[in-house]
Design a protein around this nucleic acid. Structure first.
Lengths: 119, 119
DNA sequence: CGAATACTGAACCATACAGTTCAGTATAGG
DNA sequence: CCTATACTGAACTGTATGGTTCAGTATTCG
């Protein structure tokens, strides 16, 4: 049995719409606490807490230079979470005898990614 | 922009180790509240709450016959959650120019599932 | 230097969450 | 009918969450 130690913190981090928004925003480019706070209509202090939770979960990394703390996507890549969910989908499929559906989805995903490939 | 309306409730449901355990257990076979409560060393009332949260998120369905409430996996299949996570993984990969890694993972997953295919 | 900016920390608030106990109700079996 | 079983609901406890305000500190800029 694998441990999946980060799952609690990460799924909790993902359960808030603001934090998912922050992750999507940081997927486009890095940003300061101020920028994030403004974009999500929230005080600096409030946004700082969200960033703290994301940082705790390893999903965001921050660095302070001068007055400004810059946030970017962190080292963890949701691999464990993707694996857990995929495993559940397989269990579910096994229970209802629909493996074909998931395999078909995976094939489509691969084709989609393949087109965007090669830098 | 898609709405992803269930994400809050579902990720919150998944953030608890007991509830993930219940999902895995129900992936093997259905179970009563009593059975689940015993397996996870918890009062009936406590387990009932967890099941309620999973049911709210659509991940579990229950049916009461006589004294016994039977729980099984529900209609929702974590598709939205898998999609959100996969999209984040792609964003992350795009940011760090590592699309190849994820495409490779998807290919492996497909091969793995393919072997088990065909009822 | 002085003022504006960017963050930080403590404290507070209302609500939710994980769990309990306790007192029920409803059903099954003898 | 009586008892044991299986669940249910209300109420309570302690802790966490999402947000705020307010009072700082540190940095930049004129």
């Amino acid at each position: 049995m694998v441990q999946y130690s980060h799952l609690d913190a990460t799924f909790a981090a993902l359960s808030d719409v603001t934090r998912r928004g922050v992750l999507e925003r940081l997927g486009r480019s890095e940003a300061s606490i101020s920028e994030l706070a403004e974009k999500f209509h929230m005080t600096l202090t409030g946004m700082k807490k969200h960033v703290g939770i994301l940082e705790e979960a390893g999903l965001v990394a921050t660095e302070k230079v001068g007055r400004v703390r810059t946030c970017r996507l962190g080292a963890r890549r949701l691999d464990e979470e993707a694996a857990w969910i995929e495993r559940h989908r397989l269990l579910w499929a096994a229970r209802f005898d629909e493996l074909d559906v998931i395999v078909e989805e995976l094939k489509q995903k691969e084709r989609g990614d393949g087109r965007k490939k090669r830098r």
